[in-house]
Design a protein around this nucleic acid. Sequence first.
DNA 1: CAGGGCGGTTAGCGGTCGTTAACCTGAGGA
DNA 2: TCCTCAGGTTAACGACCGCTAACCGCCCTG
Lengths: 205, 205
Amino acid sequence: MATRTDAPTRREQILKEAARLFAERGFHGVGVDEIGAAVGISGPGLYRHFAGKDAMLAELLVGISEQLLTGGRRRAAETAGAPEATLDSLIEGHIDFALDDRPLITLHDRELDRLRDTDRKRVRQLQRQYVELWVAAVREVYPALAEAEARASVHAVFGLLNSTPHLPRPGTLPDRDATAHLLHRLSRGALAAAAGAGGPSPSGA
Amino acid sequence: MATRTDAPTRREQILKEAARLFAERGFHGVGVDEIGAAVGISGPGLYRHFAGKDAMLAELLVGISEQLLTGGRRRAAETAGAPEATLDSLIEGHIDFALDDRPLITLHDRELDRLRDTDRKRVRQLQRQYVELWVAAVREVYPALAEAEARASVHAVFGLLNSTPHLPRPGTLPDRDATAHLLHRLSRGALAAAAGAGGPSPSGA
DNA sequence: CAGGGCGGTTAGCGGTCGTTAACCTGAGGA
DNA sequence: TCCTCAGGTTAACGACCGCTAACCGCCCTG
């Protein structure tokens, strides 16, 4: 984990506040003056650190995607040969991210289309690789699951995990650990059920 | 169901196109000229039908929330006394909505903060009632599940079901029915797992 | 102690956006 | 036949937004 001890750089402050504001009000809904104000400088001062508003979003989205993929690959490597452990570790990693960086997780699947072509392609490629990492892990645990269904299930689990930003009230549910455990259980349960009955009619109804 | 046969009103055309555009590029990312162009009229012509851009979003969001809640209540009433059937019916209804009205489901949890106070409160109240309907149904099937956990699980399942807009490619997965069945299985599996082990440590990790 | 550049400031420009004003047209009813 | 009015049109206004220009003070280094 290597928890940082040194003070955050001005660039990092800006990125953090920009992420929060973009997540709250949307990319187009936030002005550069507001971002500046959030870090104590005003408006055009941001251009000493970034080429423009687009560049902030691009750096955020590319950063998120790279971080997710890198972390996922590390976890997959650490647990190689133990499919159950790999899947659990991937889930755990994604949960940590969703709980600790809510604004980023929100941006990640919401503002992708606001990027320049080149950046958008890069982010999409990283996202695709991350999905494939999950699909492989899921299919090792549940070999009966067809690839298309595995991929759809993985997307669905992402949706489940990324729902944390609009949980009732942060604090209603006991604490962070309990939420993490619950999300973990929900994810495993969903995937197990996906693999359970592949055939046409599910069970009831 | 009462499938409509008469031609859609101009207002309805506008709302439909506005929903699609808002979902694609965000509320602030779409101009009134584009919405007008999408229905063959241009720009200010929209003001013959709506008080403003905000009014379109408001009508969309209130409409969605009312439709979800009304449909949910009807389904709950139809299956009263049979908790499993109620839960299945709620899931089925939400899936139908997510698959048939993707833009609306996207808007529903994304652009809420762009509403005027009065409209936002109304939408939130409708959403809250819809959640409570689900929570009640879930807890009847899984009485062991604490309320806070049930509520969080319901939000998570919403996230799962609402993930359909960014499924890989519509068409990769066999067809609509197969997707619906998969989503149903995933949801039931997740909820069952939530109720399964309430205690601290989940299983592996 | 001089000087340079990093990281700010304010003023302002150009473009876009939501909205209004003023005008027009074609169909329906008295 | 004429009036009305629903439902369009184009022009234009005011506000806002992203970004650049021009300027400035402070710290660090030679």
